[in-house]
Design a binder for these strands. Sequence first.
RNA 1: CGGGGCAUGGCGCAGUCCGGUAGCGCGCCUGCUUUGGGAGCAGGAUGUCGGGGGUUCAAAUCCCUCUGCCCCGACCA
Length: 579
Amino acid sequence: MRWSNLFAPTLREAPADAEVASHRLLVRAGYIRQLGAGLYSYLPMARRSLLKIEQIIREEMNRIGGQEFYLPALNPDDIWRESGRWETMGDNMFRLKDRFGRDLCLGMTHEEVFTAIARNELRSYRDLPQIWYQIQVKFRDEPRPKSGLLRVRQFLMKDSYSFDVDDVGLDRSYRLHAEAYRRIFTRCGLRFLAVEASSGAMGGSRSEEFVVFSDAGEDWIVHCECGYAANRERAVSALPPAEDPPGDEEPRPVHTPGKKTIDEVSSFLELPQWRHIKSLVYIVESQPCMLLLRGDHQLSEAKLGAVLGTEQFRPATAEEIREAFGADPGSLGPVGVRSLRILADEALRGRRDMVCGANRDDYHLVHVTPGSDFIAEFADLREVQAGDPCLRCGKPLRLDKAVEVGHIFKLGVRYSSSMGATVLNREGREVPIVMGSYGIGLERILASAVELYHDDRGIVLPRSIAPFEVVITLVRPDDADQQSVAEQLYGELLRNGVDCLVDDRNERPGVKFNDAELVGIPLRITVGKKLADRRVEIFHRRLRHSREVPVAEAVPSVISMLEGYDQLAVDGERSGGDR
RNA sequence: CGGGGCAUGGCGCAGUCCGGUAGCGCGCCUGCUUUGGGAGCAGGAUGUCGGGGGUUCAAAUCCCUCUGCCCCGACCA
């Protein structure tokens, strides 16, 4: 490719509304242009990069026996109604009607379509296992698209689905995917981490996310140097040591006029927040339920959902609380509460002499001991906080933001049961197919690579996913010697399978150097005045070093520099995510 | 959906408070010069000032309304 024929409109200034680095740089470098909220056009540079990512994914999926499909993005409503997700997907699903008034939607994911194929075609355990995948567009009507390509309404996804006769088979398919994903992200040059993820209330026994640490991400990851890592919805921490005072006095009411929040009551009584019991009221399947946490802890609704086994819950309104307790929120507590279910976080187990609301406005109880002054079911309900001790090693946990680039999920029989996808097993009994589902966001690989690898001059992409591997900067296109050497190197690199671009534009050298660095091409060969000594310069984008080599050695030098290029990223500052 | 902000040429912005018919930088076009780090000089083109309505002799500017985009929050299989 010659830059004079390449449409890569670079900008000196980024659009004012681009905040995160990957958004700003991908626009500036001429990779993408915005069409609407969460909608981006991919110009040739982005397309080239995404095609390389796609090809890496394809090769690794094929390697584990995956078979590539291509399904309609436009789906009829019936299969979604069968799985129950026509309703549960809610506003996140784009819906439309055809000319006959029939309901259709744009696919957000393809469990339904693949399961529909499976139930029609897979009859026997002999047909299993199957790993089916596609690389295709997905549509999700996000409440708030943001951060350039990181959260959009239309995006490319590799989604795959495994079909096995039993859990042993699922374990194997799941493990194959985990291995393929590690190879994919490694080949894409990403420093990533596999973390335990919450499987939600939708059944399923195990789920892992593959994340890239970045402040531009929205996924909070709890991790520890010992290797423990989980997303925040799933993460657990050790119980912080409690040093409650000795003695077992009876609960005693104290007047706490106008003090409602834990913060206010704790200052008023001059007792630290961890000596307080935070009492929340939720309506669970239309029944009030009391939730107790340590004063300085936060409820994790994801964990609550897992404990309750339902998503049908919400915080109670002030009126509902008044009706159930005869007191306003701010003075609630579990002592004397009989008719309600009470769930307490594990951090309250074994505690004593705490403070809670008295179920009487402006009064709190002191000397309250869980287990003797009230009875509750204990469960893990709290959100892990940075600095909590690690459950495995006791060291303080870290909490950092990350981009989720992939997710693997043991689905079990959730879709095969609801949609009737069964096979006959070895004993001749009809059993639902055991499924797994696995996804990778292609644009997120590109965007998180840019987040991870950029500098003040622009993008520094890994070689494996860069739109070009090498750019030959022809300093003086009107110089016959320079021109012929550039052409000769170009031809030779192409013959060696190097994806090469010649910057033959009639621009000043500074423009060409700046553009080459902005768009993030790994190596630049400068063919310029040093040709007088039969030498060219090779500039290393990541190291920002350049070296001069004789023209005759340029091609072998470039090839060997390209080989080690991505390793420099993986070996970089943060130790490799994959262990 | 709640809160905040923005909308003026391709990009970045000024002008809006205080109404008088639109300007700057970059980019673009032509010519000459220049050519190893976003060139110089000269000349030139490009605007329904997001849409609609209103007030006024006169609206980018004031009022009403709609739309779009960004940020924070809520939400997120």
